[in-house]
């Protein structure tokens, strides 16, 4: 028997970042109040900023007038500094509401609401299925330098990344879990009656959270670590003259060319020559993340005729066998 409890969703990296936590009871109300205070603080800071900016503009106008009248020049240090624009809080908390919080082990249940007399309320009986992940691992989103808007995914550790020639790519690693497709889609799209229909025997990997930014990716060759790359911010720069139409450059927040801009993505950059490699993600303490190992292989572009000739080998052997058999028969019949 469950009673209503206040709860709220807390999104530490913002509503659209996907990661959320459920806060229950006083913690939910406290966090929501904290969020409201942060928002109010932000608007106050915005007001202060506008006022400071108006004063700054007025002071600059006065300086300009003075310069034009007197010809007196100012050094950069003498000029007033513009006020810094405040940033809104990224995190978000929903308003605390009351609900029945269900936390059950894996299994199939029936739930219903009962009134204060203990009688079941009509139409409240529902089926509830609690399911678990089948496997967990680390999935990669691989952004090829040549097609940065079309990343490829490697979710299963049995998958191999095949390359042709020297390639540059950017890797983002995610913690992931594998769920039954039917159950997962039913849970996430309950409002759609056909969600997950016909997918009872299919499984899907779900990227849950991106690994922390201090995670590194090691590249191994012959079992030895040959390179270690870390997460860095990158910016996609449009370049009309460049063959791709863009160039991916490392984002430097201090550089003038990136003033007022944000990085396009954060990832681990890999530049690989043709060869056979193994990659793995390691945390800040150097521990290999489970399920993060992948093989990388460069393919050899062989002429197709070689493969087709190989296919005809059995036929050639067969012809030899048949011809030899016929010759043996002829020899036998001549001897007889």
């Amino acid at each position: 028997m469950l009673e209503r409890q206040p709860y709220a969703h807390f999104y530490p990296d913002g509503f659209y970042a996907g990661v959320s936590e459920i806060l229950v009871g006083d913690a939910a109300e406290k966090k929501f109040q904290e969020y409201r205070d942060a928002i109010e603080g932000y608007w106050q800071a915005v007001n202060d900023y506008r006022q400071a900016y108006a004063e700054y503009e007025q002071r600059m106008a006065e300086i300009l007038e003075e310069v034009s009248q007197t010809g007196k020049t100012y050094t950069e240090d003498e000029l007033p500094k513009p006020p810094e624009q405040p940033s809104p809080p990224i995190w978000y908390v929903t308003e605390a509401t009351e609900a029945f919080i269900v936390n059950l082990p894996v299994g199939e249940y029936v739930i219903r609401t009962i009134d204060d007399q203990g009688r079941a309320v009509d139409g409240t009986e529902k089926k509830l299925k609690v399911f678990d992940k089948r496997r967990t691992g680390v999935g990669y989103q691989i952004i090829p330098e040549s097609k940065w808007t079309r990343p490829v995914q490697s979710d299963d550790a049995s998958q191999i990344l095949y390359l042709e020639g020297t390639r540059t790519m950017y890797l983002k690693a995610f913690r992931e879990s594998e769920y039954n497709q039917h159950d997962y889609l039913k849970m996430t799209s309950l409002e759609q009656p056909l969600a997950g229909a016909g997918a009872t025997s299919a499984y899907m990997w779900v990227h849950e959270t991106e690994v922390p930014n201090d995670t590194k990716v090691q590249i191994l060759q012959g079992g030895k670590v040959v390179m270690e790359a870390e997460y860095k911010p990158y910016y996609v720069k449009q370049t009309p003259g460049y063959a791709l139409g863009y160039e991916i450059v490392e984002f430097d927040p201090e550089a003038d060319e990136f003033a007022g801009r944000r990085p396009s993505f954060e990832a681990v950059k890999l530049e690989l020559e043709p060869g056979t490699y193994e990659i793995r993600a390691v945390d800040s303490s150097g521990r290999v993340l489970e399920g993060s190992v992948r093989d990388i292989r460069s393919v050899n572009v062989v002429p197709m005729w070689q493969l087709y000739v190989l296919s005809l080998l059995p036929l050639l052997v067969g012809l030899v066998v048949v011809v030899r058999r016929r010759r043996t028969r002829v020899v036998k019949s001549v001897t007889a």
């Binding site: 691989i142 490829v152 299963d156 095949y162």
Partner: peptide
């Protein structure tokens, strides 16, 4: 693989 330059395949 040759057309895309990069491809993920299981086996």
């Amino acid at each position: 693989v040759t057309e895309n330059g990069l491809m993920v395949m299981a086996n």
